[in-house]
Structure formats: C-alpha cells, structure tokens
Design a protein around this nucleic acid. Structure first.
Lengths: 352, 352
DNA sequence: TCTTCGCATCGAAACGTTCCGATTACGGCC
DNA sequence: GGCCGTAATCGGAACGTTTCGATGCGAAGA
C-alpha cells in the first residue's frame, strides 16, 4: 500500500480511499492509483483490515459430520449466500463430539468470526458457552431445547405428520416408526408429528412399534429386524432419517420381502439415490439448501443490526415436502400379510 | 492483553510470553498472568497475531461441488488433519465454474491463507493464476495437465485397469464404458486403465461401446440407454463415477433387466448406499478420507519448509480398492443374452 | 483585498499482537 | 565492596490497514 502510494505520488490514505470508494477522490488521482495498484499487483490485506475495523467478514459453520449427506447441502446453501454477500466460511466438523465442538467454538472466537451457524452435536453443551455472550448465532436443523437464540429448521412436527398421514391415507393402521435419537430435536419432533397423526385418526401407538436410540444405518437394520420379527409386524415403517431408512431397507431385503407389496416404507430426508432404488423410495424432503441460505441471511441480519435493535424473526420453520414414489402403497393383501408374518428369519445377508 | 498485563502487574510482553510459552517466565508471574487471563476471560486475537507473524494458520479448500458425495469425505479428511495441526479451513465451492474458482482464489489470497488445497473445476484456469507465484498448493483428485505443482489422487489408471480386469476375469468380452468427461484427469486416466486391460487381453475396444461427455446422473442414463439399444449390447458396463453409475442402473431398470443375470455393472467411487441396492453394487473405492488427510500433510510440509529446501514428493498416487458385490457376475447365459438383445425399448420410467 | 467556506488530500494514531534489543536484579567472585 | 554474568522482565517498533482531525488551496462573498 505504501509502495502503491509512492508510485502514484499520493498518500496512503488516498490509496485507502480509492480502494474503499467511500471518500471522494478526483478522477485523475483515482486513475493513477489504480494504475499503480495494477502495476504492483496490489491486493488489500484482509487481515490488517479486519484488525482495524474489528470485522472479519468470516463466519463459522459447525456441523456434526459433513460426511452425512444432509450437511453438504446445508453448507452449500449457506456458503453460496455467504460468498454472494462477501463473507467467507470457516468450516468445522465436530464429529458428533462435544469436546470438538467446544474447541471449534473457541477457535472461531479467537479468529474473530462475525457469526456462527451451528448444527450442534448430540448432547451439545454449545449453548452454555454461546448463550451468555450476545453474539450472532443461528442454530440450524438441530435446535437445543435449553438455549435461547435464533434457529432455523424444517417443521419436523409437520413433516412427521405428513409422512404418517400418507400411510394412514393408504389405510395402514399398524405403523412402525424407527424414531432415531430422541434427544435431537428433528427426531423428537418427527415422532411428535407421528403421534399427532395417529391420535387424530384414533390409531393406537404400540410400544413395540416404536423403536428409538441410534441414528446410524446399523441402528436402522436392527430396528427393522426387530419390527419384522414381531408376532404381528407393522404393515408400514417410517424411518426418521436417511441412514435409518437404508438400514430398514436392508432388513427388509434380508427377508426377501418386497415393497410395497409386503409392506410400505418411507423415510425422512430425500437424497439423490432414493430415486434409483427398487422400488424408488418414498421420502419426506427437507428444503435443505434453502435452510442454509436463510440461516446465513438471518445471521447476516444479526451481524449487521445495530446493538440497539433486535432481530425480529427468531425461529424459522420451513415446510417439508412429501415425495411419493413406489416404496409405499396400499395395505398388503391377505396373502402378502401371511408372508410378512411367516418370514421371521432373514434369508441371507446382503451386506458385503 | 493490556488489561491482563495491568491486572497481573506485568508488561504486555510478559503476557505474550506466557501465552506463547516460548520464553521462560518465572512460575509465580506465570500463575498470576494466568489468573488475570481467566479473570478477564482473555482470548488471544488470532487476527492481530496473523498480522504480526505473517502466518494465518488458515488454509483454503476449493471444491467443485460439496454436494457431490465424493467431496465431503475428502474435505473431512483434510479438515480433520488440519484441525489436529492447529489450522482452520476456509471452504469454497466453485460450483464447477471457473469464474467462481478464480474469485475464490483471489479472496483466499487476500485473506492470507497459508496454503490452498484444490479440486479444480472443469476447464479450470486456476493453474495460470497459481503457478506463477511460489505458493503452497496441492491439487487433489483432479490434476490439471498443464500446471506444475504437487498433487494427490487415486491411481486412476490402476483403478480403471482393476475394474476392467475384474470383468475380463468373469469372461466378459463386450464391455461398455461410460467414461465421463475426458477433460478431467480421473476420467481420462480410468479410461486409460480400461484400454490397458483390454489391450492386454487382446479385446477390441469398440467405438460404440465407449461413451463420454457428461458426469451427471442424466448423462449416465442416456449413455446406458444408448448402450442397451445397440444391435449387440455389451454384457458389462463400467461407469466412471457414482452419478453415472446411478444413471446406468436407472437405464437398466427401465428395461426391466436384472444384474448380474442379464448384464454386469460396476462403477467408480463406492458410496454408502451402493451396498443397499438390489443387487448390491460392485464398485472401485477410493481412499478418499486418506487422500484428504495426506493432501493436508503435503501442504503443511510445503508451508513449513524453509524457502531453500524443496518438498521431495510431488505427485502422490493412492491405490484404489475393488469391492466385489452382486451387480457383477459371469457372462450372461445364452437365454439371458437373448433377453438383453430383445429389450431395446424401456419398459417404464422409474424416476419421479 | 481580505475573510470564509468547502473540498480534496494528507499525517498520524490506533487496532492487538510479536519479538528484538535494552534494562534491571541478583548472586558469585576477585 | 565493586564488578561481571546470567536470567527474567520490559519498552517499543512494526505488521497493513482505517479513520479522524488537520491542512492547504481555490472560489465566492463582503
């Protein structure tokens, strides 16, 4: 910058004025400064600028596992919006581990990020370290029950309701649910939606049809096996996320059962490959990209709001969309139901 | 820092010495400084530190599309290693678009990142803006043919060879390949491996069995349809990435053909869901997480090397691993081959 | 002709660190 | 008791910006 100033024969402040364009500079000087900048291949140093202005134009995004197909979409939505607005994104992966999450938060603070977007990990204590400070922060997808603060997620109660209603509309009455980990708001809420729908249509919710606990593929397989081993198995199964859905599909394949003839299956989260299964899987899609985008926009509002004024919208809930494909259908006919009851042992493993 | 110094009754430099631990400070002073830091909830400002030291401890990672399942794994590997080494990661998504890629590179430079990990986009001109400056940079997965610089990727020639060899070992002779976009090194190299294997076993490479161009699911579907519509369709199809594989599977399903009875299919990149297809899909897996990890480690070496010494290892190639499942099998028997030839029109669409 | 005003430009302090050279304190030795 | 060496601590410049008050200068008004 000093060199640019010298070459252009102006002061450093004038160069700064040209770079930032907030102060009027006479056209001829401006041109000569720009020429000098080009000649020296000058690029402003964002670090020095941040130090001076106290604003980094960087946000942090913390996710529990970028490898889980839900998060790339979310991050993408946020990153696209951030880039467009001149922000950069520090990505942190907590590996679903509180210690990591906390240390990431500390690093982000010391890097002076302007705000944080977080999809917190299981048993997260993030809100404890975050809530006290009045700091721009938006929870995404997984909303801690305790902490205050802005949040954005799918309306999972509605999503759970819609999915269940779809099965009920197909005349299913014995509906099993692989509910995931109920300490996480999405799973908790989806179960609530399920309950709402069942109650609305006066259907009983049997304990043995409700399996909760893990959120991995293996948990889905176990749950599916358990449901299919029951004296009277459900005629439809709802899986609370994409991994559990895969597990359930696996358990069904092991018994050589066919969807939707023998039983119906649907899951939350709709991923690319769901369309290419046989049969194509019915799923409840979340507006994940939009969630990321709006999360950033909310955060930006908070960052740029004057200390006095409050941000109005605190908790955004986006509607989910049911995508009906071929893994759900009418209640199995009598002979299929017999097959369903008879096949209580897996035929062969599919996994390799 | 000034406040901490005042509270502890020491100079600012002493606080700095305590924070960095590189200068000896007497135990009692050290303790009082630490007490003061805790009392004031002091956290060192990484930005000021970066300005002073000229090192940001931040690296940039540029990927063409984080939504493509290959990249989260890669990013995860790099991020894990970076975090462990005290680095943070600025994530940039180029959307497979050169303009975006270039502007991301500029932003990363002005943010003074210590190095860049890049999986460049199609027709990338990144090496032009990067090669000139002697800057820590590692190309991942997609290696530009022009630019110099360190790189890491799967040994895709070997991968292509192994995949093809697997089919040849099953006595396939008419092997179709959906080769992707040959301007990208992975696809180019896999085709080369395919060619090597075919030549080694004196099998002809028919033009009509080689389809290249796009890398999306739809491209795979089109290519699959084209191959299946041939007078004499191939008895096995190789798809050059996960999306193309999905497309091919789709084309096969449309014709109600069964793998591996009617034809064998396998693809590059092994993803979670491949195991849950019916039949489970044979695939060539890349050590993606490790690739990310080692990419970072290579970059770190470059960052921390003295200006004099050169980094020795310039181009790392990691071995791929064939995972045989149930979508590949022996050459279809006579009657199945007849089905294959007869079914030249799709039966029904699976997609919704 | 002298004062006043507005506008373009400039100089310098400050942001929160690091780090080098300088300073102080203290014990041992002649 | 004065001198020296060592070790702990300190002062201050510098990193590359922004920003604010100061400065100079020309035009307009009295």
């Amino acid at each position: 910058m000093r060199d640019v100033a010298r070459l252009a024969g102006v002061s450093i402040s004038t160069v700064s004025a040209v770079v930032n364009g907030n102060v009027f500079v006479s056209p001829e000087r401006k041109a000569s400064v720009q020429r000098a900048m080009a000649a020296l291949d000058y690029h402003p140093d964002a670090i020095a600028r941040s130090l001076k202005t106290g604003k980094s134009n960087v946000i942090g995004i913390i996710v529990p596992d970028i490898t889980n197909a839900f998060y790339p979409e979310l991050v993408r939505g946020a990153e696209d919006a951030a880039t467009k607005a001149g922000y950069s994104v520090l990505l942190c992966d907590s590996s679903e581990n509180c210690k990591n999450e906390e240390s990431h938060i500390n690093v982000l603070f010391s890097r002076r990020v302007d705000g944080i977007l977080i999809a917190c990990c299981i048993n997260s204590r993030a809100h404890e370290s975050l809530a006290q400070r009045r700091f721009p922060l938006v929870y995404m997808d997984r909303i801690p029950s305790a902490g205050a603060g802005c949040s954005i997620s799918t309306d999972n109660v509605q999503a759970g309701y819609v999915a269940t209603k779809h099965l009920i509309d197909l005349d299913h009455q014995r509906i099993g649910i692989v509910a995931g980990y109920l300490g996480l708001s999405p799973h908790h809420d989806r179960l609530e939606g399920f309950r709402n729908a069942m109650q609305e249509f006066h259907l009983p919710i049997l304990d043995e049809y409700l399996i909760s606990g893990g959120i991995q593929v293996a948990d889905g397989t176990n749950a599916g096996q358990a449901l299919l081993s029951l004296q009277v198995p459900p005629t439809a199964i709802l899986a609370s996320n994409g991994n559990l859905l895969l597990g359930v599909v696996q358990a069904i394949a092991e018994r050589r059962l066919k969807m939707p003839d023998h039983l119906s299956v649907l899951g939350f989260d709709d991923y690319l490959w769901h369309r290419f299964f046989h049969p194509a899987l019915t799923a409840v899609a979340q507006p994940t990209h939009e969630m990321g985008r709006r999360a950033f926009e909310l955060l930006k509002q908070m960052i740029e709001s004057e200390p006095g004024q409050e941000v109005q919208e605190k908790h955004i809930r986006l509607p989910a969309e049911l995508r009906v494909r071929n893994s759900t259908g009418p209640v199995p006919q009598r002979e299929f139901r017999r097959v369903l009851k008879k096949t209580r042992q897996p035929v062969a493993a599919n996994e390799k």
